[in-house]
Write a protein that binds this DNA or RNA. Structure first.
Length: 464
RNA sequence: GGCGUCGUACCCAAGUGGACUAAGGGAGCGGUCUGCAAAACCGCGAUUCGUCGGUUCGAAUCCGACCGACGCCUCCA
């Protein structure tokens, strides 16, 4: 049995079988670039990264597309209040997004299509939907999708819209739709949109939100692809609407597996600005937590489980990360510059890891496998029971695990020649039992945030 | 109201009806090693899985009720 994942579409665990052998076409919903992404957004992005890294670990050729929503109601509102152009505003938050993604060691998608670069593609899809009788134009120049024209509407979210009640918000909606649940494919221009509009066959206006993901996913991955993922809140209406648009336009199945990530809570409740528990990545970095600990914390809770972010949790993660990184340093001290290719020595450990991750990305169990192995390695090192060849083989497996985790081989320390000389001097001082000089040198390194640890195999250098 | 999730030690967290007298991490306590420090190793730590019932030879796992926390139900990861 290979990788199984929980498919929201069927509400069942399913074995993953790619449409094209050895290749995975993956789409994930990206950010709306009107403010700094918050830590909850990164829970999703780290989950998607885990899924992608594990697919790569299994040897798949992964083709990954993530959209950038750079036009929508909130963006336009901010452009108005801050008197900046759409491009200027979204450029700021696009680069902020990419910076944070890099800080958290998230592998970039192959393509990051932006909505505003695909206006004509979206219009073409809307045109097809009108032509096939799935959409209609209203008097204000908007185009709506007619959900009654798609018999499978509700297939993903299991929402039955015939029994829903009109909410106040819907009743006050200014757009002129035939059915309250019909959603906008194209929004006709309104006064408050200012100069943010594009020409279309239906008059000037701008695209609806859902249409961009249908358009861009199909453009870059084909009309039928393997996995579509995002946060649970996107199941309805966003992903439901994507299915409706795509299936009605092409007449083909759209996505095989829908995989959704649960939300992140902060201090036990939903993050919100008014409660003061709203964090962006920078807030946590400023509190002194390092990116690796943050990534580790976001990674270690199963993706379908709510994750509660606390400062205590961040501290605990730092400890766990240190344990993972320490075994690497110990092994490297033993192996020296000996490098071994991937071998069968620790095959059982790797198989256990794969067994865990194959079961719906059970990372907690996978980490338990790694930690058990680390204790065994440490024991062997204590008992002088491991040679440099085995140590080098262990490093090779540790590196392989870290292609999935991306928390172990981090923070290389670059020492100056002078520093290296000082470390040698300290070794000599220690041999001569000159503890005063040895401690002086250690204090010096402490001041430049480097910790020296003495081991039987020599001095190990760590970041504080 | 509809759809859905969760409740496991001080904290985080896995658990695929039977090897569970319940992984793993963090914190704690005791010990070993060590010039000191750190790391590492060894040991201790849930007679119990929200509560109460039921099914079963057997339940953390299945079923029911209740208690509690939470998500979605028009643009939010």
């Amino acid at each position: 049995m290979g990788l199984t994942l929980y498919n929201t579409l069927t509400r069942k665990m399913e074995e993953f079988k790619p449409i094209e052998k050895g290749r995975v076409k993956l789409y994930s919903c990206g950010p709306t670039v009107y403010e700094y992404p918050h830590i909850g957004n990164f829970r999703s992005f780290v989950f998607i990264d885990l899924l992608k890294r594990y697919l790569l670990f299994l040897g798949y050729d992964v083709h990954h597309v993530t959209n950038l929503t750079d036009v929508d109601d909130k963006i336009i509102a901010r452009c108005n209040t801050e008197k900046v152009s759409l491009k200027k505003l979204t450029d700021i938050y696009k680069s902020a997004f990419f910076e944070d993604m890099e800080i958290l060691s998230i592998i970039p998608a192959d393509v990051y299509p932006a909505a505003t670069d695909h206006i004509s593609d979206m219009q073409e899809l809307v045109r097809i939907l009108i032509e096939k009788g799935h959409a209609y134009v209203t008097s204000d120049g908007s185009v709506f999708f007619d959900i009654s024209s798609f018999k499978d509407y509700g297939i993903l979210s299991k929402v039955d819209l015939t029994g829903s009640i009109r909410t106040e918000r819907v009743l006050s909606d200014e757009y002129d739709k035939e059915n309250v649940h019909d959603f906008a494919l194209w929004k006709g221009w309104k006064e408050e949109d200012g100069d943010i509009w594009w020409d279309s066959p239906w008059g000037k206006g701008r695209p609806g939100w859902h249409i961009e993901c249908s358009t861009m996913s199909m453009k870059y991955l084909g009309e039928h692809f393997d996995i579509h993922c995002g946060g649970v809140d996107l199941i309805f209406p966003h992903h439901e609407n994507e299915i409706a648009q795509s299936v009605c336009a092409t007449g083909k199945p759209f996505v095989n597996m829908w995989v959704h990530c649960e939300h992140l809570l902060v201090d036990g409740t939903k993050m919100s600005k008014s409660l003061g528990n709203y964090y962006i990545l920078q807030d946590l970095l400023e509190k002194g937590y390092d990116p690796t600990s943050i990534r580790y914390l976001l990674l270690t809770t199963h993706y379908r489980q709510k994750l509660n972010l606390t400062e205590e949790g961040l501290r605990a993660s730092a400890g766990a990360v240190e344990r993972l990184q320490d075994i690497r340093l110990r092994l490297e001290a033993l192996a020296g510059d000996l490098v071994k290719k991937h071998s069968k020595t620790y095959k059982e450990v790797e198989d256990q890891f794969i067994n865990s991750l194959n079961r719906d990305l059970n990372i907690s169990e996978g980490l338990a496998v790694i930690f058990d192995w680390i204790r065994e390695l440490n024991r062997q090192i204590e008992n002088d029971n491991i040679d440099r060849h085995k140590a080098a083989e262990a490093i090779s497996l540790l590196k392989r695990f870290d292609t999935v985790l991306a928390v172990i081989f981090k923070g290389e320390i670059i020492l100056s020649d002078n520093d290296r000389q000082l470390i040698r001097e300290r070794e000599e001082a220690r041999l001569k039992k000159d503890w005063k000089r040895a401690d002086e040198i250690r204090d010096y390194f402490q001041k430049i945030s480097i910790k020296l640890e003495d081991t039987p195999n020599g001095t190990v250098v760590k970041k504080v």
